[in-house]
Simulated scan of single mutants.
Amino acid sequence: MKNWNYTRLIALSIFICSCSKSEENTPIESMYFPANNSSIWETKTTTELGWNENEVQPLLDYLELKNSKSFIVLHNGKIVMEYYFNGHNDNSSWYWASAGKTLTTAVTGIAEEEGHININDKVSDYIGTGWTSLPLAKENLITCKHLLTMTSGLDDSINGIDSASLQYIADAGTRWAYHGVFFKLQDVISQATNQTWNNYFNTKLKNPIGMSGLWLQTVTENVYWSNTRSMARFGLLALNNGNWNGTQIINQNFFTQSINTSQNINLSYGYLWWLNGKSSYHLPSTQFEFNGSIIPSGPNDMFMALGKNDQKIYVIPSRKIVIIRMGNAADNETAALSDFDEVLWQKINAVINP
């Protein structure tokens, strides 16, 4: 009996070792990056991933019902789903709205890495004093980092980023409020690099990752427009921690900081990125603190670029997934966040979690 058990133990050990070697020898799919200046983008199927094909159509029906124009899902860089609605197509441009804030974050990180700026410096070091209507002592409290984290202390009830519109409500760093003043970072970078914002952006971010698109200036903001695949390219850069096919576009330490809690007031906010899975969050235009995660049905490690009328970049590192949604407001809402996110994620989960 002892000999039989010993023999069985040896056989089991051999089996375990062979399985381990087999797993070690199983190739891990490397991150795919589409070539610049090419319409070719490799794909994979939901079947290959073991996703629930039967739930794809209900997801698409919901997206179309909710005024979507485009929807892309990437897994490890490859396109799994790409759909267009309501006359939109892969060449059509659409606005990113506040989802484009994260483009400014990225370029800020690049400018700091190149030694042009330091985000801990006060804004007036770069664009001069008098850029707000605040007393000089209060204005000089505002650093570039405060603009990245929405903690400038400026009055968010007043629209506009001219000096007369930028009025004091609290000391910088003591209050979180969603405010368009972050656009001043583009002026900071332009002054610090002695280049136009567009030129620096194109040279350092847009061209290296093969994006299309352009910035269009309105009265109060600078809005980025592009096709949906360009938004997906930026999402893929974010999924890969600021690295594009072996080239570190955004300093990795800066990028990591940007997708983690940046201050102790709104735990769900990084450097203009929204963060899921935190214990509480604030929404634009309110000082109320909500308990729980922003999107309860969404993955806890998800970070997001969210824009007016439901422009979305969802990045989920644990699943190697990027999801893009462009379109009109799902429910006549205009805020960066709405109930649409929660219902949409319930339907996405039905596909990716069979």
Score class of each variant (00 low, 15 high):
1 M>R: 02
10 I>P: 05
26 T>L: 15
29 E>I: 08
41 W>R: 05
55 E>L: 08
55 E>Q: 08
63 L>M: 05
63 L>N: 01
66 K>N: 09
72 I>G: 00
73 V>K: 01
74 L>R: 00
89 N>C: 04
98 S>C: 05
109 G>A: 10
118 N>Y: 04
121 D>R: 00
125 D>S: 14
133 S>Y: 01
147 L>V: 05
148 L>T: 03
158 I>A: 09
162 D>N: 14
162 D>P: 06
165 S>H: 15
167 Q>L: 11
168 Y>F: 12
173 G>D: 06
181 V>Y: 10
182 F>D: 10
183 F>M: 14
187 D>Y: 12
188 V>F: 04
190 S>P: 00
192 A>M: 12
201 F>H: 08
206 K>L: 11
212 S>N: 15
215 W>F: 14
219 V>H: 15
221 E>A: 13
227 N>A: 14
233 R>W: 01
270 G>P: 10
272 L>K: 10
277 G>F: 03
286 T>F: 07
287 Q>N: 15
297 S>C: 11
305 A>K: 10
313 I>M: 03
323 I>D: 00
324 I>A: 07
325 R>I: 08
328 N>L: 09
330 A>E: 11
331 D>Q: 08
335 A>K: 01
336 A>R: 09
338 S>H: 08
344 L>H: 10
346 Q>W: 09
353 N>T: 14
